[in-house]
Design a protein around this nucleic acid. Structure first.
Length: 370
RNA sequence: GUGGGUAUAGUCAAGUGGUUAAGACAGCGGGUUGUGGUUCCGCCAUGCAUGGGUUCGAACCCCAUUACCCACC
């Protein structure tokens, strides 16, 4: 028995309504996972993250390995206990940092050598090491150590990179022993090339893992390109396993992903832009810093029932941000997270009622994308 | 009242005769997609207290005026 299982409940077109059962609880899918890189969803108390309906959050192997160190987290009794979050946790493998650290790292067949962004010290992250760290953290879902190719990247770069990611996945699988309490998800790569995506999918699906992710998208490519790549590769993943589109995203991308059969998403966007004064609302993105909100005493999103919108005005939120007050980050983050989690809940309902397409159109019309 | 000093953007300021007047903060606008983000990128003085003068050319030199600061009466 694997730690994480998926049950498909209903389909509306390719959109899937399902449940994931993990050691720390059930997850209704499609799901949006808030990101808590350093064992905290920034500016949020775990209780508040729970209250707004998040059923799973994401943490990062690379960051926790560097600080405080996975041995510390393990000594604390595992990540759940350490950070006071008793629902499922997914940990990213550190693979994305291979991409985002740019020239501060070197990739070899063995793994990736990093210069710590904290103190410059050098560290080697390999498939085996990533499994060791994620095992010590004790997350429900652990991700394979992969390489996310940049965009744009030519075939000559992407093909060997993708093949190495597949070899790394084999090593991850071999190193991952604790399959009863944690489940390893594989990651498809292949850049923007349909045939490489197909090859990657075929190779990783053979390994019969409890779940699969699509990596290497949402790295700066145009939306249409991401959609067309998804068109060509989501169906290559097994129907009876959860499908996770990594690093996505904005509300519109969520709809595009679900429409093509994606079950899981994560993104730093709501928390990051929240801390920087931008809100996601049902009528589009709002920059609360704008002078036009100086005397606007309406709630951020009049249609929202989150704590922030029930109690505070745009003028107050603007004031808090301009004053550099901590409450600004808290209130905006809570709203943004609530908005995306709630958007996913609406998507799930629409799939159950076979009206996903209409729901998507309605959302776009209001959000200002159409 | 006498002597001295200072006046450059909302604020603090660089610039002491030669092409489009540094920079910082504030302000304004934008960005942000498996978090290297109290972050990043733009914009923001046709004008240097005011009025004259010298000069090919003045924020810069000269004169007057005004305001403020410091001393001394």
């Amino acid at each position: 028995m694997t730690a994480v299982t998926y049950k498909l409940l209903h389909k509306d077109g390719k959109a899937r309504r399902g449940t994931i059962t993990a050691p720390h609880g059930k997850i209704q899918t499609p799901v949006f996972m808030p990101v808590g890189t350093a064992a905290t969803v920034k500016a949020m108390k775990p209780e508040s993250v729970k209250e707004l309906g998040a059923e799973i959050i994401l943490a990062n192997t690379y960051h926790l390995y560097l600080r405080p160190g996975h041995d510390v987290v393990k000594a604390a009794g595992g990540l759940h206990k350490f950070m006071n979050w008793d629902r499922p946790i997914l940990t990213d493998s550190g693979g994305f940092q291979v991409f985002s650290l740019g020239d501060m790292r070197k990739i070899t067949e063995e793994g990736a050598e990093f210069a710590s962004h904290i103190d410059g010290s050098r560290h080697m992250l390999s498939p085996e090491k990533s499994m060791e760290v994620q095992n010590a953290l004790g997350s429900d879902i652990i991700m394979a150590f992969d390489e996310c190719a940049p965009y744009p990247a030519d075939r000559e770069y992407v093909m060997p990179s993708m093949e190495r990611t597949t070899r790394w996945l084999e090593r991850c699988k071999a190193a991952h022993k604790d399959t009863e309490t944690q489940s390893l998800f594989g990651i498809m790569q292949g850049g923007m090339y349909d045939d490489l995506r197909r090859k990657s999918a075929e190779d990783i699906v053979k390994m019969d893992l409890p779940g699969y992710a699509i990596g290497g998208l949402s790295v700066g490519e145009p939306k249409e390109l991401m959609c067309s790549v998804l068109d060509g590769c989501v169906d290559l993943l097994p129907e009876d396993k959860p499908r996770y589109l990594m690093g996505v995203g904005t509300p519109d991308y969520l709809f595009e992903g679900v429409e093509r059969g994606i079950d899981m998403f994560d993104c730093v966007l709501p928390t990051r832009i929240g801390r920087n004064g931008t809100a996601l609302t049902s009528f589009g993105q709002v920059n609360i810093k704008n002078a036009r909100f100086e005397r606007d005493f309406l709630p951020l999103d009049p249609e929202c029932d989150c704590y922030t919108c029930r109690n505070y005005s745009r003028a107050y939120l603007r004031h808090l941000f301009k004053s550099g007050e901590i409450l600004s980050s808290m209130l905006l983050t809570e709203h943004n997270l609530h908005f995306l989690v709630n958007t996913m809940a609406g998507i799930r309902r629409s799939i159950e009622e076979d009206r996903f397409a209409e729901h998507k159109e309605e959302f776009y019309r209001k959000y200002g994308y159409m």
